[in-house]
Every structure is written in C-alpha cells, then in structure tokens.
Nucleic acid binder design. Structure first.
Length: 328
DNA sequence: CATCAGGGCCCTG
DNA sequence: CAGGGCCCTGAT
C-alpha cells in the first residue's frame, strides 16, 4: 500500500522577484494536514517544502527548496514519482507548480499602490514577496473548503485525516511520509453511508456530488482560470455544496483574484474588525468598504498579508483575542 | 443529563 | 428573502 517515490526530475525555478518562498508555501493560518510539510532554513538547507501531488490520478511528490533571496529568488524543485516521467510531462508539472504558487506575477504595482498605507507598510516589509496560492488542484481545494464549513479547526483536521486514511495513498519520498489525495473517481461510486462512517456528517452528500461532477469531467479548471470573477463565481456556485464562503476562498486562493473581497465570513469578520478597526465586531459592509478605500483592486491580497502576519505573530506570542476565536 | 452553536449551504414557503 | 435542517463535537 505504501508507495515509495524516487526523484525523477530536478529543475531550478526563478520566480519573478520579489519572491518569498517561506511565506508563499507556508500559511500559518491554515490547518495542518498530512499532505504537506514545511521546514524552516537550517545550516545545510534553505527553507524546504514537501507536498504530495495527484497528477493524472497518479501520486507524485514535490519538494521546493529556497536557494535564493527575496530580490534574486531561486527555487530548487525536485519531483518524485513511482516510475520515470517524460520530459514534457515534467515540464507541464513545473508549469502547474509555477501557477499554483503564483510565481510569475509582477507584484511591483501592488507594492507601489499599497506600500504607503500605514497599516500595511510594516507587514509588507516583513513579508515582501509573499504570494497567494493553493498547493492543490481545484478538486483538492474544494474538498478542503467543504471540510471547513460549519466546523471548528479540530473537526476539520479529523475529517481530513479520516478521508486521507480511507481514500488517499500513503507515499514516502525524500524521507517524508505523507498522503496523496484521491482522484474523484475513487469516491464517485462510494455510497454516502461509507462516507458518513468517517464522521463527515452532511458533507458526505456534498463530497459524493463533487466527486461525480469532477469524475464526469464537467469542471474545466483551465477555463475557470481564464474567466472573469463574475463568470467564475457563477460557475462555481453551480457546484453542489459550494456557496459564497467557499467561492470567496476559491476566487482568491485557487484563481488568484487579488480583488476577491466582496464577502466576509463570520470568523474572518471578527479578525478583520480587530485588524482594521481595533474593534470586536464591525459590520461586514464597513470592512469591505474600508479595504476598498485603502487598497482598491489589491484589497484581498493586502488583507491576506495582514491575516498571515497575524498568525505568524501568534507563533511568537499568543494573541489573546485570537486564541478565543480559533478554538482548536 | 440536555441543549446549543459552529471557519455554510440547500431547500422550502 | 427568511429560516429550518443537516452531522458531529465540545462547551455550558
């Protein structure tokens, strides 16, 4: 059952500067899952990140190592596979990785437009070169967003683990043991009862629907990337179990729409109330207006900088009001 | 012990 | 457009 993967391809990536690998691959606000692993820099290595991939329904491994600096970035990429991969296949995967971690976008206009904002300036300095990204495919990310619904972090973590143990593939590469996620076909035939036994609750129905939709090839991720925000939103809302909160995450993380902040969920509402107004609870409309006023079309990216910075700070010293909200 | 809300969404009226 | 139901879990 355990799949050993060996290194089959290496490449040196040069993302568009400024680029911060650590802040891009590792988001301290995200819940931990045994599909990825991050390690800060050591004497022998730059910061490293491992992640399982599912490529054409086959489990692969990925390692990214920081081999440069913010203004002259270099990333050493290694691909791991059960057998050899063709050169063209490797190139396609590398292109996909570049996309997922948003490596080619020019951040200069963002820095120019928002750099003077007193709230953002210190944070922008600390995390300069951070990108938004989603390390998984659209299908993988949708599952994550569904597991986040109506659940606390602890429960989300449990559900994710249960699904990976039941439907995922344990893989080992580069001395790391992770799970690779499952192709939609794997779950499509599964009856809901089987899923319910994994204690995902009403999400069983959602997961079944999503799997069937993806397995039948009704979702074109490439096409979504090319759509306008409104078009993409309309398409994504057609997916069963996907509503405004999930679409909000999707537009930003998966489709990299830096302006995708027209909705705020209750949990984030409390956090942005503190960050922007130093108040406990401010109406979402006011939050959105304020971000528009400050950052315009960069508002979600800017908000993301503040958000992640808060969670980095939390590591050094607990933020009392935040601890209450997280309830691990 | 019971009751309830939670990092939503669907469906009904 | 409002509001009940949905699963499970931990808090009260």
């Amino acid at each position: 059952m355990l799949l050993d993967l060996t290194a089959v391809h290496c490449a040196t990536l040069r993302p568009r500067p400024p680029f911060n690998l650590t802040a891009t691959v590792h988001k301290p606000s995200h819940f931990p899952a045994p599909i990825e692993q991050f390690e800060g820099p050591s004497a022998r290595h730059g910061a490293r990140y491992w992640r399982s991939l599912l490529w054409r329904a086959r489990p692969l491994g990925l390692c990214l190592e920081d081999a440069g600096v913010i203004d002259d970035p270099e990333v050493a990429l290694t691909l791991f596979a059960p057998a050899g991969l063709s050169i063209s296949e490797c190139e396609r995967i590398v292109r996909e990785i570049r996309w997922r971690f948003d490596m080619d976008v020019d951040l200069a206009p963002f820095e120019r437009d928002c750099g003077a904002d007193p709230l953002l300036a210190p944070v922008l300095k600390r995390w300069r070169g951070m990108r938004v990204g989603a390390s998984g495919s659209l299908h993988e990310m949708l599952i994550v967003y569904v597991l986040l619904q109506n659940a606390t972090v602890r429960r989300t973590v449990q559900m994710m683990r249960a699904l990976l143990q039941r439907f995922g593939t344990p893989v080992r590469f580069d001395g790391r043991s992770l799970y690779a996620s499952w192709p939609p076909q794997e779950l499509a035939g599964e009856c809901e009862d089987e899923l319910r036994r994994l204690k995902v609750g009403y999400r069983a129905r959602v997961l079944r629907h999503l799997s069937e939709t993806f397995a039948s090839g009704d979702v074109d991720e490439e096409a979504l990337r090319a759509m306008s925000n409104e078009e993409a939103k309309r398409e994504l809302l057609k997916l069963y179990g996907i509503g405004p909160a999930s679409v909000w995450y999707l537009l930003f993380e998966v489709l990299h729409r830096y302006d995708a902040l027209d909705y705020v969920s209750p949990w984030e509402q409390r956090i942005y109330s503190r960050l922007l107004f130093d108040a406990e609870l401010v109406p979402t409309e006011r939050i959105i207006d304020e971000t528009k006023r400050r950052w315009g079309r960069w508002r979600m990216l800017a908000a993301h900088y503040l958000f992640e910075d808060l969670f980095w700070r939390r590591r050094e010293e607990p933020v009392p009001w935040l601890e209450e909200l997280i309830r691990l």
